[in-house]
Amino acid sequence: MRIYVNGDQHEVEPGTLAGALDILGYGGRKIATAVNGRFVAASLRPATKLAEGDKVEVVAPMQGG
């Protein structure tokens, strides 16, 4: 199934947001997530099923003013 993570296309097995993040190497990092523009809390990632074409945003702390 095709999903978009931070704008880049990825092929993943159907599954959850938590699963996709693990496969893509985000496990254990300080990140926050949104799917299709909606915030998904860390506690809800294992229960959040991804669908074909979903747009996932993964953000981390960054320099800012």
């Binding site: 990140i31 926050a32 945003e57 953000v59 702390p61 960054m62 800012g64 003013g65």
Partner: peptide, 15 residues
């Protein structure tokens, strides 16, 4: 102040 930005998979800049 601090912001949130996309974290690329292999990089760990934010961390």
């Amino acid at each position: 102040t601090i912001s949130l930005r996309r974290e690329a998979g292999p990089e760990r800049a934010g961390q």
